[in-house]
Write a protein that binds this DNA or RNA. Sequence first.
RNA 1: GGGCGAAUAGCUCAGCGGGAGAGCACCUGCCUUACAAGCAGGGGGUCACAGGUUCAAAUCCUGUUUCGCCCACCA
Length: 891
Amino acid sequence: MKEITRRPLTEIPKVYDPAAEEGRWYDFWEKKGFFRPEVNPEKPPFTIVIPPPNITGSLHMGHALNNTLQDILIRRRRMQGYEALWLPGTDHASIATEVKVEEWLAQEGTSKEEIGREAFLQRAWEWREKYGSTIVRQLKKLGSSCDWSRERFTLDEGCSRAVIEVFVRLFEKGLIYRGDYITNWCPDCQTVISDIEVEHEEKMGHLWHIKYPLKDGSGHVTVATTRPESMLGDTSVAVNPGDDRYQGFIGKTVILPIVGREIPIIADEYVNPAFGTGAVKVTPAHDPNDFDMGERHNLPKVVVIGRDGRMTAEAGRYQGMDRFECRRALVEDLKEQGFLLEIKDHTHAVGHCYRCQSVVEPLVTTQWFVRMKPLAEPAIEAVKNGEITFVPERFTKVYLNWMENIRDWCISRQLWWGHRIPAWYCRKCGEITVARQAPDGCAICGSARLEQDPDVLDTWFSSALWPFSTLGWPEETPELGYFFPTGVLVTAYDIIFFWVARMIFSSLEYTGKRPFHTVLIHGLVRAADGRKMSKSLGNGIDPLDIIDQYGADALRFSLVTGLTPGNDMRFYMEKVEGARNFANKLWNAARFVLMNLEDFDPDTGGPDAAELSLADRWIISRYNRVIGEVDRLIDGYELGEAARSVYDFLWNEYCDWYIELAKPRLYGKEDPAGRRATQATLHRVLEGTLRLLHPFMPFVTEAIWQNLPHAGASIMVAPWPRSSEGEIDESAERAMAIIIEATRALRNLRAEFGVAPGKRAEATLIAIDSEAEAILREQAAYIQSLTTADLTVVPAGGKRPAQTVAQITSNAEIHLSLKGLIDLEREIERLNKDLQQTEAELEKSQRKLSNEGFLSKAAPEIVERERGRATELAAKARRLQERLALFDQMR
RNA sequence: GGGCGAAUAGCUCAGCGGGAGAGCACCUGCCUUACAAGCAGGGGGUCACAGGUUCAAAUCCUGUUUCGCCCACCA
């Protein structure tokens, strides 16, 4: 079906206006249903699941980059004939949202504690209704071709069902357990967080040396600590069993200063004799290592710091103090009472909450954990054996290193917004029931007094299931069967552990399949000065502002050009301007083509091959090469290079040369068949290049495409271009190289010798051989039109004109007539400079060719090329010398 | 303490075994009937440093320096 909706030329503005085009094309695509693939066994599927943005978020540059990359991949696959599903959705973002809702309540003068769990959740859902889709609307402005009819939410019914299913299965398999362990407690968020949610920051601190007197009065041991306040909870002092200094101390008792508690000196291999004093105070309730030592030696746990970060009753007179306040007070007291021996500067890593940046407090709490070792093994294997590939490859190591050293995952959170843990406790007998649905009674004692665990699951527990929970798992839906496993997962390197790793082991465990075959990792978008864009620095640039001002295409293009997978990039306005200019360039090239296509009907069949001009054949050849190039680059995920490749072709070849060369043929009246052949080529190459560019710049390409004669409803469902080997024309490319070189040489002479642009010049081209002569002669009209000159082509060895300045190219001498205006000295200088350069290069080349090793070991085609090059350079040098000799005589 | 990345033109970055590239900026000339968000021409680089491998190194190897990142329970 052919559909032509061409606009009159007068309605096409000279400057491309993205604001006028983008919105309506997006609506058009959406209405036509182009974003919605079907389960169609006749066609191959290609699936990408979006990294679900938080409902609390709004689109930032990181999202813009991430989604641009996904859109490029998905649009190309769709054009290639895949059933391309880009599955969108959002994440409930447990802590982040809970904080937002609490703020909201605070504004109303109330709190979550006051209104209670149920009311709080209702408010949270309200909040989500109100703000949760902000980011979705913004993604549409970017051009994201997501299937919105399948939009999911990590807390929706289906995803929740998957979460419960997984929890129950893991529990039944013994891979989920509950227990009291030392965990990372955030006193501000009032919840435990997992190990990877703790950010370590090297900080300058102190190492306090404190004297612990022996009970028997025979002396003391000195311990070193970075957190003196924790000593209030000490229940032992440990030394290394092999440490000679302390042999006599092991088994003795010391008296804890200030507190007065009697605690034993124990021996434990963990203690490093070389660090500090070689004696460690042991606080099992407030330090992970001490906790382990406590377990080994059966030490009591004395909790001195509470969940609010304040000292407990166990802290005696420090009770109620903030932990840092207590530190100051305690140090003072120790000093006063003579227990403080020394304070040394010491840098150490302090853990901070990734959400609120508070210093994390290690506390013993009751939590749920996932036993990781058994899950990690297949996840390691799948990456090692190449089932899942990271791009760039170096992230494989990062992933494996983490997986191989993985520790159990703390999944419970002391929050309300999220998936509530499906565990019920019997108030009567204490039995724990884990079930898909609330049980009627206790399985052991039959009591109906059951209480569900108040905690919710880590947000990442549900995102880990995203690639299959969104397709209906645990149900064996047709969608799951068809679209899963997915293809490429596109994400930034900072969530490899949080998300990618967890999707991999989850998918392997529950579906038995890999979640995706490729993980495309990109970097962070930084500010122009290289710093991270952040709210606190106030240096963030809103992608929507850029879209409003320059268009989504310009934003997308500037994010993708110059991008190397895995590397950070800088965002600066000059780049956006460049991309905007490119869109405009394209727009105007299209305007030119349209202006010259008014009497052209693409349906009357392609032009006869014989009617194609050199320029036609050349641009068709180049076009086919570029298709191959772009395919190769996209297949290798080098999207930045692919974009550059189209850019260069369109601007530097199609616009700069082909359009210019097409003009004489289009304007000429004497060759209607030739004119038609050029019209056809102009149209065909532009139309095809638009399709190549469409994944990168969807809007402008559609806007233009709809104005061109076209078949089909939209460029986004038009077929992806295919490279045709048969149309690659080496001889046309060689000939064009000669034309281009000659044209440049002549333009250069004109510019350098100040021949006014409008003025008709006279030029003589002396070919180096008969082949070059033929080409120059045939194409003389082109060169004339490109240089505003009258040309005479002279065969090799022909007579040189007098009174000219010249440039020697590899295939010709280009003479510009100056008739007595020549500055002899200046010309000699110019030629000499060229000769010097040529000779230097020639010498280099000859040195290579006289190298026995080069001749015998280098690839034959390399040697051949070098020979050709040397011959060319020698000829050029000889001609330059002749020319110089001539001027010398004239002097 | 381990690991990774970056270092190439004034700036931002490609290139990653065979002739140093792009965009922006800069200089010169042009409102040439697609585009001044443009056209034509031009200048500009011991590819961080030191060794090594190779016929051949910006590119591979080793080390060094500077910057950045990630991981790690020595108090």
